[in-house]
C-alpha cells in the first residue's frame, strides 16, 4: 500500500459517516437553516417584530401575514424570526460555558487524580443532587432576569455531565500506550493534556454539547414562558407562547407556530446529536 493515502482525517471520516445517516442529515439541515435565519434575521423579517398595529389584531395566517398576527397586531413570522437568534445565543453561550468548565475540571481531575479529583467529583455530586431548574428559579428570584443571566446560570448548572464524561475519558486514556510514549519522549503535563488527552476526549463532548444546546433552548423557553426569561417586548419563542396562553381564544396560530419552532429546533439538535453519537461509535466499522 505505498503511494497515495486517502486523506482520512478523523473529521472527514465523521462527516462521511454522518452523510450516511438521513436522520442526522435532517437534523443538520434544521440546525444550519436555523443558524442562517438567526444571522439574517433583520433581512428575513418582513415586519418590525415590535411594531404594534391595532388595525391588524389577530389576523389569521394569510398573504400579508404568513403566520398571522398576535393580539397587538404584531407579525408572528417576524417575531419568530427575531426569536431565533436569542434562542440560539442562549443555547450556544450556555453550553459553551458548561463545556469550558466541565472540560477543564474533568480533564484535570482525571489526569491528576488525588485530592483534586475527589474535590471536583464531590462538587459534581453536590450540584447534581440539586434540581437544576429549581436552582435557576431560585437564582432568578434574587437577581434581575435578563438573557445574559439565564445563559450564565444555565451554563453554570449544566457542566457536571460534561465533567464526568471528560474525566472518564481521560481516566481511560491516561494509561494508554500513546500517552506513555509521549512521556518517554519527554512531554510535560501540559503537552500531554492538550495534545494527547484533550483531542481524544473531546469527541463525546461534541455529542453532549449538541444535545445540551437543545436542552438549554428548552430551559430558556420554559423560563421565558414563566416570565422569568427573556422579557417582553423582546420576542422569544417562550414568551410568545406565554402571551398566547393569556389569550387562548386569540387564534391557534399564536400557540402552534412558536411551539413548532421550539419543537423543530430541539428535534434538529437532538437528531444531529444522536447522529454524531452513532457516527463516533467505534464499534461501527468504516469499510
Amino acid at each position: 500500500m505505498s503511494g497515495a493515502y486517502r486523506d482520512a482525517g478523523p473529521w472527514r471520516i465523521l462527516w462521511r459517516r454522518l452523510q450516511r445517516n438521513p436522520q442526522a442529515m435532517a437534523g443538520l439541515a434544521i440546525v444550519v437553516g436555523l443558524a442562517v435565519v438567526a444571522v439574517l434575521h433583520p433581512w428575513l423579517a418582513p415586519y418590525d417584530p415590535a411594531g404594534v398595529n391595532v388595525r391588524q389584531i389577530l389576523q389569521p395566517p394569510g398573504a400579508d401575514h404568513w403566520l398571522g398576527t398576535d393580539e397587538l397586531g404584531r407579525d408572528v413570522f417576524s417575531r419568530l424570526v427575531y426569536g431565533a437568534p436569542i434562542s440560539l445565543l442562549v443555547g450556544f453561550v450556555a453550553v459553551g460555558i458548561s463545556v469550558a468548565i466541565g472540560t477543564v475540571l474533568g480533564c484535570t481531575a482525571g489526569y491528576y487524580g488525588g485530592w483534586w479529583d475527589s474535590l471536583v467529583m464531590r462538587l459534581v455530586d453536590l450540584l447534581q443532587a440539586i434540581p437544576t431548574f429549581f436552582l435557576i428559579l431560585a437564582a432568578i428570584a434574587f437577581l434581575k432576569p435578563s438573557i445574559w443571566l439565564i445563559m450564565v446560570i444555565i451554563g453554570l448548572t449544566g457542566w457536571m455531565g460534561v465533567c464526568r464524561m471528560v474525566r472518564a475519558e481521560v481516566l481511560s486514556l491516561r494509561d494508554r500506550e500513546f500517552v506513555m510514549a509521549a512521556r518517554v519522549q519527554g512531554a510535560g503535563d501540559m503537552r500531554i493534556l492538550l495534545r494527547h488527552l484533550l483531542p481524544n476526549a473531546i469527541v463525546p463532548v461534541l455529542v453532549s454539547a449538541t444535545l445540551g444546546i437543545a436542552g438549554a433552548i428548552l430551559v430558556e423557553s420554559s423560563l421565558s414562558f414563566l416570565g422569568l426569561g427573556v422579557q417582553p417586548p423582546q420576542p422569544s419563542w417562550g414568551n410568545m407562547l406565554a402571551q398566547a396562553r393569556d389569550n387562548l381564544a386569540g387564534g391557534w396560530w399564536n400557540t402552534v407556530f412558536p411551539g413548532a419552532a421550539i419543537f423543530v429546533t430541539v428535534l434538529g439538535y437532538n437528531l444531529l446529536g444522536e447522529g454524531l453519537r452513532d457516527a463516533l461509535d467505534p464499534k461501527i466499522s468504516d469499510r
Binding site: 478523523p10 500513546f178 509521549a182
Partner: peptide, 26 residues
C-alpha cells in the same frame, strides 16, 4: 521506547508527521 501494541501506542488524532516529529519539537 518501542511499544507492543501498534494500535494503542499511536495517538489516533495525530498525523504521522506530528507523531514522529513530536520528540523533535519537545
Amino acid at each position: 521506547m518501542v511499544f507492543q501494541d501498534p494500535y494503542a501506542s499511536l495517538n489516533p488524532r495525530m498525523r504521522v508527521a506530528q507523531i514522529v516529529g513530536e520528540g523533535l519539537a519537545i
